[in-house]
């Protein structure tokens, strides 16, 4: 069935195809992600001292960006999509950080 339908593909849909990574690149990304995860988990077994938490945050952000950029094609797709997502992400970060600060550091109980 797929062979009969295949010609239609050319006339329709994705014009971004040529930008898309190859499976090899995807696998490479996955290997990077695996290594980063291993590094993350190692903080549990090895003592990284004060840098442990900043390191974990950085690793988390890097993993996040790799998945979003490559697997979700943000790097290749329209910037509108990224804007949609990052608006939500930064709004969430800002609002909840503010709320947590108010709750933890400026409750009337402390006044």
């Amino acid at each position: 069935m797929s062979s009969t339908d295949a010609p239609e593909q050319a006339s329709s849909t994705d014009e971004h195809d040529d930008h898309h990574p190859t499976p090899r690149q995807y696998v490479n990304i996955a290997v990077v992600l695996a290594v980063l995860t291993a590094l993350e988990v190692s903080t549990y077994f090895l003592d990284f001292g004060v840098i442990a938490i900043p390191l974990l945050v950085i690793l988390m952000v890097v993993k996040f960006l790799y998945v979003a950029g490559w697997f979700m094609h943000l790097k290749f797709d329209s910037r509108v999509f990224g804007r949609m997502m990052y608006t939500g992400l930064f709004l969430a970060l800002g609002l909840y950080a503010l709320a947590i600060i108010v709750i933890l550091f400026d409750s009337a109980t402390i006044a």
């Binding site: 108010v102 550091f105 400026d106 409750s107 009337a108 109980t109 402390i110 006044a111």
Partner: peptide, 8 residues
Amino acid sequence: TSAIGPVA
């Protein structure tokens, strides 16, 4: 008037 402080 809830339990939030003067800075907030």
